[in-house]
Design a protein around this nucleic acid. Structure first.
Lengths: 243, 243
DNA sequence: CCTTGGTTTTGAACACGTTCAAGGAGGCAC
DNA sequence: GTGCCTCCTTGAACGTGTTCAAAACCAAGG
């Protein structure tokens, strides 16, 4: 999907463009070089870990000069971001059909999250590098920042689709904000998962099993007619916090 | 309080010792040097920010050689940690009397959190440096790790005191785990606050106003006799997640 | 005093992420 | 061909956090 439509990030032409976190690329040969560098990086990251891999290693492995990587990627972390962007692109194809397969809200949410975790699986520890810098909302690569808004919004839309015509039915006044909240919930789960060293990330499973049910139940309860006031209050908090 | 009782962190003699994140210090002169370096660092951090201050700057400001700082602190971040440890020490004196002032659970929790935020206020942005590395539970300075357990436990004890003989009454089967959950809640609030650039961190206030009430209400609801099953389920999730 | 053994201090050296001026490489106009 | 322009590539150089062997200091014992 649009692997060739590279747009300098800071000049994204159309909102629909897939952000791939690359710098200038014009020719086919350049594209190949970029890919070679990214592949070399991911391969080394997986073998040795992020901190243990140097940019010199990566360049050597890709057969280019040290500075070459910086022609295509602004920083070492952006190499990880490029991997993330790749999977996000895949998710756009995989997740929408998955959501339509069932009307059960819990199953839909679970499906979305499971899919993403499976995508990241091989590079689980690697994502820590993204979190370390992304936790600062001022950093370009922050998941909350301007530059990542496209990917974030795409991800939020998955959840908007998930709560549409679902069982249980989501009250109308939540339709706007709930997707963002669910996205936040997902980010929390992924964060937990990244540091979950239990066999097969068993603990994350337990957390998912317990909390998805809870989330759905909570939505259900807040849907009761008598709970209109509670919903309003929660939304008011959310508004105040989001400014 | 025990400002002189410096114990190498990795050989903490007694659990009661205050961890100050310093390396070997034997003589009074050395203690003065250490203090001078820490003060120089904090002063520069506050003026220019963490990333913009180099270890060479700090050493120069303190009037010592570049390597001197590494005799007392294992890393640049540990300078920030030393500041954090200082405030934690203060908190041990300030917070306990504060908790006994009222029986209102909400007010107690609010008091604890407000106090900590006020302590950090001057160095708010600085704490980001701690989060960046602390988010990784494997890092020595992680708030979840072994090395910080004393400070963490002290902090958790504040909340244990807060839920003791409070209004509303906390059900017995929550007494063990609730303090840790409240501590986690506090960490979340502090995290939000660190990145809250609104005037006077207005948004954090809004978040506190909204959520503390909610937390208390939730405890209240879960105390109803009919809610025993819900409590058991929540605790089961917690156990599974904590391993 | 001198020696000895620990503690503290020094500053050069190292490894790393990143920058940048300089130089190909390839196409296009004439 | 020759000049020119843009895209791509190079590798030395810079600034940084950190390490470490050596020196300086200092108190106690002789």
């Amino acid at each position: 999907m649009a692997r060739n439509a590279w747009t300098p990030v800071w000049r994204a032409a159309h909102a629909a463009d897939v952000v791939t976190y690359s710098l200038r690329v014009a020719t086919a040969k350049a594209e190949e070089t970029r890919e070679r560098i990214l592949d070399a990086a991911l391969s080394l990251f997986r073998q040795r870990g992020f901190d243990e891999t140097t940019m010199r290693d990566i360049a050597a492995e890709a057969g280019v000069a040290t500075g070459a990587a910086y022609y295509y990627f602004r920083s070492k972390e952006e190499l990880v971001m490029a991997f993330y962007a790749r999977t996000a692109e895949e998710a756009r194809e995989v997740i929408p059909p998955l959501v339509t397969r069932s009307h059960d809200l819990g199953k839909r949410i679970r499906g979305i999250i499971d899919t993403q975790l499976k995508q990241f699986e091989e590079h689980r520890r690697l994502m820590v590098a993204l979190v370390r810098i992304g936790i600062d909302p001022k950093h370009p690569l922050s998941p909350f920042g301007e530059e990542t808004s496209e990917m974030r919004n795409a991800s939020i839309e998955f959840f908007r689709a998930a709560i549409a015509e679902s069982k249980p039915v989501v009250p109308k006044d939540l339709l706007d904000d709930l997707p963002r909240l669910l996205w936040l919930y997902q980010m929390g789960i992924i964060l937990f998962w990244m540091f979950d060293e239990s066999r097969g990330q068993r603990r994350t499973r337990a957390l998912l099993d317990g909390t998805i049910d809870l989330v759905v139940r909570l939505i259900q309860i807040s849907s009761l007619p008598m709970m209109g006031r509670l919903r309003k209050r929660l939304l008011a908090i959310l508004r105040a916090v989001e400014e």
